[in-house]
């Protein structure tokens, strides 16, 4: 820490400056969420009245929209599906991309550059249309209209992404440590598991968080590969059920958005701990 170098006053000024700078960011990030919460708690009469203030609740908060969501739709089933699918798909993707990322970042063998590029290029394929041929594959695998259709297809966009993210992190890990381990008699797998992997934990946390979020939020595959209400994910279930032609159930839609975000927020809070601990440990010390 640099306590000794600068004085107390300077430190306070600097912290105040940082907080001041953070305020607009936090406001920008939170305002829409605040607004969604407010909307989800308003009665329809207030929601659709031109005289009322959209910014806060004037006529009392109500839980009707939440009740509607929980009692009149299969929201809880959708949430469970989303959870199972996201965890499995993210887990599978990490299991595949951690070794791949390490291999592409660290090892030297013929064609490593080509493989790296090939993995990446697949990411350029626009999903807007990719889902059409993929739907045929899903039917061929016999997993159409089940949650497995999503568990199997989500890694297609998670693996390239996580592989490349992890490559970046593996590169920031000093090579010397692994080399020492190898010289000391460790196998390559041991060097990967004992040395490189723990050091890349911030990267793995990042990949996990992003992977989880991407799968949780995925829309087009979840819409097209699954039809039964009992197998839908939260995002598809909420939009498919609460948009009825030219009538939108705004209150319940926003309630769905809020509730669908909660588990993922919890997961972030949980992971942020590890993230921060990685931070304070000074991360990479030889």
């Amino acid at each position: 820490m640099t306590t000794g170098v600068r004085g107390r006053g300077a430190r306070i000024r600097s912290a105040a400056w940082a907080y001041g700078n953070l305020v607009p960011f936090v406001f920008f990030a939170l305002f829409p969420f605040y607004f969604m919460v407010v909307t989800s708690l308003k009665s329809n009469a207030e929601l659709y009245s031109l005289a009322s203030a959209p910014l806060w609740i004037q006529r009392g908060a109500i839980a009707d929209h939440y009740r509607f969501l929980l009692e009149r739709t299969d929201f809880l089933v959708w949430m469970r599906n989303s959870l199972v699918i996201s965890v499995l798909a993210t887990g599978v993707s990490l299991a595949i991309s951690i070794p791949a990322g390490y291999s592409l970042a660290r090892l030297r063998f013929a064609g490593v550059g080509g493989f790296g590029t090939a993995v990446f290029i697949t990411y350029l394929v626009p999903p807007t249309l990719l889902f059409l041929p993929l739907s045929r594959v899903v039917v061929w695998l016999g997993i159409a209209d089940t949650i497995w259709a999503l568990v199997v297809t989500y890694p297609t966009f998670l693996v390239p992404f996580s592989t490349w993210l992890l490559m970046g992190y593996f590169r920031t890990v000093p090579r010397e440590m692994e080399e020492c381990a190898l010289v000391d008699g460790a196998s390559r797998m041991q060097a990967l598991l004992r040395i490189a992997l723990p050091m890349a934990v911030p990267g793995i946390v990042c990949a996990t968080l992003f992977g989880f979020t991407l799968t949780w939020n995925e829309f087009i595959y979840a819409l097209t590969f699954v039809s039964q209400t009992a197998n839908k994910t939260a995002v598809v279930g909420v939009t498919a059920d609460l948009i009825r032609g030219d009538i939108y159930y705004w209150g319940s839609l926003m309630a769905g958005a809020v509730l669908a975000s909660v588990p993922i927020v919890i997961c972030y809070v949980f992971f942020l701990d590890y993230y921060v601990s990685g931070l304070t440990a000074g991360s990479v010390k030889g």
Partner: peptide
């Protein structure tokens, strides 16, 4: 061996991408 280990580690990723991305991509 470095190259065997390297290929081994990326093999799962390549299999996945070849099966589930290559066909749809070429189709697209």
């Amino acid at each position: 061996q470095e190259h065997v280990f390297g290929y081994g580690l990326i093999l799962p990723a390549l299999v996945l991408l070849a099966c589930l991305v290559a066909y749809p991509f070429l189709m697209a």
